[in-house]
Amino acid sequence: METSIKNYFNRIFGQMLLITCVVFAGLFLSACGKKEEDGDFLLEEDDKLVVYTSHKEEIYGPIVREFEDRTGIWVEVIAGGTNEMLDRIRQEKENPAGDIMFGGGVDSLQVYADCFEAYRSEKSDQLNDAYSSSTDSYTVFSRLPIVICYNSKLVNDASLPRSWVYILNDYWKGKIAFASPENSGSSYTAIESLIQILSEDYGLTEDEIMNRFLDNLDNDLLEKSGAVLDRVISGEKMIGICLEEAALKAMKTNPDLGILYPQEGTTALPDGTAIIKNARHMDNARLFLEFSVCEDVQKLLGDRMYRRSVRVENANGENFERFYDIDRSIADRQRILERFNYIKKETE
């Protein structure tokens, strides 16, 4: 009797359990079925490109946007300092996250040549070949001349240092704005250019040049290259050595700022673009590289970005440029930076 009742209850209980399971399974299935798909928003790998850049947004922004517009490729930009990005590329060498390094002086890019894919641009014959890579590790992007800027309120037209050698004159002692070459790549290029030009034209030794230049800096070395123009504009310093790009841009809003191209000429070390070895989106990286040296982009450099094109046709009529010996620059680097360190230590 008892067992039969128990069986009866067990059966009822079993049925209840079954019904519950069915209901819950139904709910579960309906919940699953409603899950929306992201299929519409799925990007093909072919449509992607990851750009590492040391450019400022005002440079890469319009170029990347136009690239996207014209190719339909989605670009992810990761921006940072030149050394930061190059170190990152080296770290990721085994499994690269980026596809292309956009920006960075060609001297720096050459140092990291092992991380880059050898690629010769289809347009290489239209480009300035003075600094082209012997290993095709990079392709030049824009030329950045070193210039002397001055505050026209403080410096009389007649007393302008029209030659690099005037910079070394006692007259400018304590009046020159210059950024630490250790922190600023362009600043190192500037001092190296000074040494290369003056030793070539006047037979001065590196020591003579360094001694007199450092003496003229009067132990006042600026932290960042951006500060050079600020000091000149504010009148703290009369003249400064900086990139033409920065000076031209600053002139737009500061009519008192002047630019001087020394009579010996000046160097215009280009920056470049390099495809990262084993990039995941190799084809798109090549497209981007080709785009960076196309006519429109190179024209825009001059029209809107205060830079000089690396395309031969855009350099017509220029005669200021002096060759910058990259190998020598790399060889001299340690020694020259140490001189600055020594000076800096003395001041501290």
Partner: peptide, 8 residues
């Protein structure tokens, strides 16, 4: 102001 006509 000049807006590049070959661009954008």
């Amino acid at each position: 102001e000049i807006l590049p006509s070959y661009w954008g």
